[in-house]
Amino acid sequence: MSSLRESGVVGDSAIHRLDPRAKLVGLLAVTVIAVSSAAWPVHAACAVALLLVAAAARIGPRVIVRRARLILLPVLLVALFARTAFPPVAAKATIGTVSAVLLGATTSFPDVLHALERLKVPRLLVLIAAFMYRYLFTIVDEVQRMRAALTARGYAPRHALQVQAIGRVATALFLRTYERAERVHLAMLARGFDERMPRLHAPAFRRADALFLTALAPLLAVRVVA
């Protein structure tokens, strides 16, 4: 579960302080442009753009590699089966992953959620993502406690039939999560929840944000020409 802890914002820079909407739209655009084309000049341009963003945000290659490999290794493995199409598929996968890593390393998850909400993504989806983020760590802790309890009583599965204990753990976890959801709902009602998620303050879209998006615009030109 160390991969879960290996997340969050790294460092601070002008990029970090941009409006999360600008970063979300910009980096998503890079991914979409890369994925929508098979021409190598487009991929090269996207890679250069990401490198520039990484440099501006002072995110080192180590952070990027460490985080990207979680997704990239299995994806590249699958891409190997595409044989002749491997280079473009691999390029698309790498660009998409690195965009996501850069967004994650420069923007906190709550900020991404705000951005999604302000970009008019359906509220229910944003709400689900928010609760998932909040309770992921709680649930992981619960799983670890249950696993420790199993191990403490000598559970060490050697053949398939012994796996049923895992199934029981999954059931217990589901029930616990369900009960927690009910309690959380009560706690929300107690504080006047009326089906709308209130928002504290909205960040303003400033000149730097517009500048960031304009700087990425040449990519679009490359995509159209190539």
């Binding site: 959620l113 609760f131 983020y133 909040r134 709680t138 959380v184 706690a187």
Partner: peptide, 8 residues
């Protein structure tokens, strides 16, 4: 953990 459900 039931009472604190927002991201921050």
């Amino acid at each position: 953990d039931d009472q604190l459900f927002m991201p921050t």
